[in-house]
Design a protein around this nucleic acid. Structure first.
Length: 626
RNA sequence: GGGCCUGUAGCUCAGCUUGGAUAGAGUGCUGGACUUCUAAUCCAGUGGUCAAGGGAUCGAAGCCCUUCGGGCCCGCCA
């Protein structure tokens, strides 16, 4: 039982009433009341019928309320018409509470069947393997991971991919640095290899391009060899990118993110998948050979009200987008799969991470899907729009390829100053090439240290290992929550000092509610007995908490339908607020009767279970103490 | 020049898809609550011509149009 049943019951009851009364059919809304004094559920049917019936909304609501009262159904205890015209309902709590609490004990509580087990591919992360992850990448990773978790909860059969662009310009840059720039391919003691490549080699070699044109020429040469993949240099490149990737993945795993498969761009290039896609595009008339004008001799894609996009240059070589098209088509299972797969590693959760290969001795697997979600920041919208269009042509179905875009993360002027950058009071775009960024590892380390000190102060009796574990959980909770609570199309201005704030609408606030609930359950003389009628539960605080618990599946459905992770973030926060309010106003262990203590323990348990499940969708651990 | 996003309280943001009740949070500031299930908490106060103008509607923060401010993108680079 969740609030959904209450809503459905009211919706159906009203529909039947309207039929009986001869009212025209309307798509009225049954939803949560906007204020507690209006009851639990509200309906706007009065407004919608006002015109057709030539009556005031209040009069219609009044009539409906009177009729509805004759048969209240199971979960409604009161109906009333409000002067404004709304029809308001109060839930039948003596029935609602036990149903909600019992339902929440199910390990699948909150699961909805939107996906019907259909295959869904989610691609995220996809960071060039030449540097360490910065907080901008973290937004991508956390959005992607959270969406994957939500869609899984919504009964999609999900595969999570990380696209490794190991044959691009950025990789060529660091290879130039190692081979011709005099940089050692070993990181100095104490520095992660990905940080060394990004902080030192990549930034320095980019600076040197300014004055040393010979290096720029060498880069083109390196890039070509990387794409061909046969030379010693290409092998060296492969070695380097894999070492960087390994370090990047450590950061992802630390954030609680796991994948199903690593797809290497170099293999897509070498697999000849491109020529298959190209032929298909030619035969479908998606691309045409330009005969005149500035793009004469190029194969181009015509875009509506925008400039044509060159696909194949007049010298016959393919452009950047030519790598993305076959890959997108592969993800949708449109082209025959040229890849074989082998274990990369087994991740901490036990989930196997596979990687693509071109070696026929390896295994055949299926990581493609009926629908694909690609998480890339919205600066790539233009390109992604073209790919979306081509995929819907290929698949003859719109919406099978979705570009999930999001605005970027910028650095606040104060944080930029810590990088010796005076931005004149403006926030600044991060840039790996220019060395303007705050790395994910650094933020996590600083956060972890901060939460460690806090946890130690509060729990002086806990041992070092437990404290480290708690501080890491809280640090990750704080970072993940800050990346997800905001809408995707809002720029996040990252400020190092502000990121250390752990109060109010933050991950730690939510985690703290869980820890508090755990302590009550721990300190209780006995474990909750659910074979009871829950009569002790009757304050507004308890009813409010119950309602919040009962909303879980509705929120999952909303988040999955709209690909909106923040809905779950808001939900977790709302749950925590309801609990903290309850906690301050209602005593559990010192309640007047045994049966009330037990009923409240059941509610606390129900809350704790639900919050932990909801937090899991955000990839945030629910600590027992903090 | 064209395209995408954005503008709501001092600051950071919900609400806008699907119009409806007194526009909500957090933070900041002011004050209050720990011999009590952990104060990473709670309670109260403070704070808003919802960028501006126009339109359709019984009704607009929300829909349509215009203007203005801010950000991003538009290479035979990747």
């Amino acid at each position: 039982m969740t609030l959904r049943l209450l809503y459905d019951e009211i919706r159906l009851g009203l529909k039947q009433l309207c039929d009986t009364l001869g009212y025209p059919q309307t798509e009225f809304d049954v939803s949560e009341a906007s204020r507690p004094e209006f009851g639990d559920v509200s309906c706007n049917v009065g407004f919608l019928l006002a015109k057709a019936l030539r009556k005031k909304p209040f009069d219609i609501a009044q009539t409906l309320a009177l009729e509805y009262k004759k048969n209240l159904g199971t979960y409604v205890s009161e109906v009333s018409a409000h002067a404004s015209g709304y029809l308001n309902f109060v839930a039948n709590y003596p029935l609602l509470v036990p149903h909600v609490i019992h339902s929440s004990l199910d390990s699948n509580y909150g699961t909805v069947d939107l996906g019907k087990n259909s295959k869904m591919v989610i691609e995220h992360t996809s960071v060039n393997p030449n540097k360490a992850l910065h907080v901008g990448h973290v937004r991508n990773i956390i959005i992607g991971d959270t969406i994957a978790r939500i869609l899984h909860k919504a009964s999609y059969d999900t595969s999570v991919l990380n696209y490794v662009d190991d044959s691009g310009l950025q990789v060529a840059d660091i290879i130039v640095g190692f081979k011709y720039g005099g940089y050692s391919d070993k990181a100095p003691e104490g520095q992660k290899f990905d940080h060394y490549c990004g902080d030192v080699v990549y930034v320095k070699i980019t600076e040197r391009y300014e004055t040393d044109k010979q290096l720029v020429e060498l880069r083109s040469h390196v890039l070509k060899e990387l794409e061909e993949g046969t030379s010693e240099l290409a092998k060296f490149g492969d070695e380097i990118t894999r070492r960087v990737l390994e370090e990047q993945l450590k950061t992802c795993w630390r954030l609680g993110v796991t994948y199903d498969c690593l797809n290497f761009e170099s293999q897509i290039v070498r697999s000849k998948l491109w020529s298959v896609a190209f032929e298909k595009m030619k035969s479908m008339g998606i691309t045409t050979l330009e005969q005149e004008g500035k793009n004469s001799g190029c194969w181009v894609i015509k875009a509506e009200s925008e400039d044509d996009k060159v696909l194949v240059r007049s010298n016959g070589t393919a452009t950047y987008i030519a790598k993305d098209i076959p890959y997108a088509a592969w993800k949708l299972g449109i082209l025959e799969d040229p890849f074989y797969y082998k274990h990369y590693t087994v991740q901490k959760t036990g989930r196997v991470l596979w990687q693509t290969t071109l070696d026929s001795r390896d295994t055949k697997m299926h990581f493609t899907g009926d629908r694909v979600i690609t998480v890339i920041d919205s600066r790539q919208s233009r390109l992604q729009k073209i790919i979306t269009q081509i995929m819907s042509d290929f698949k003859s179905k719109p919406d099978s390829y979705v570009h999930l875009g999001y605005e970027s993360v910028t650095l606040s002027p104060e944080t930029a100053k810590t990088l010796d950058l005076d931005t004149g009071g403006k926030s600044v775009q991060m840039s790996g090439r220019k060395g303007i960024y705050v790395s994910a590892d650094y933020v996590l380390d600083v956060l972890s240290e901060r939460t460690f000190n806090e946890a130690k102060k509060r729990n002086p009796e806990l041992d070092e290992i437990s404290l480290v574990k708690i501080s890491e959980q809280v640090a990750i909770g704080a970072l993940r929550y800050s990346m997800i609570k905001q809408d995707l199309d809002k720029i996040i201005t990252f400020d190092l000092t502000e990121s250390l704030s752990l109060e109010g609408d933050t991950g730690p606030y939510i985690q703290y509610a869980h820890a508090r609930a755990m302590r009550i359950l721990e300190k209780a003389a006995k474990s909750p007995n659910f074979e009871t009628n829950f009569d002790g539960i009757n304050t507004v605080y308890e009813k409010d908490l119950t309602k919040a618990i009962a909303k879980f599946d509705l929120q999952v459905e909303d988040a999955a339908k709209n690909l909106s992770p923040k809905i779950i973030a808001k939900y977790c926060y709302q749950l925590a607020v309801s609990f903290n309010t309850f906690y301050e106003h209602v005593k559990v262990l010192t309640a007047d009767s045994e049966s009330t203590i037990n009923a409240r323990l059941c509610l606390v348990y129900s809350f704790k279970e639900t919050l932990a499940k909801a937090l899991q969708l955000l990839g945030i651990d629910a600590p027992d103490r903090m």
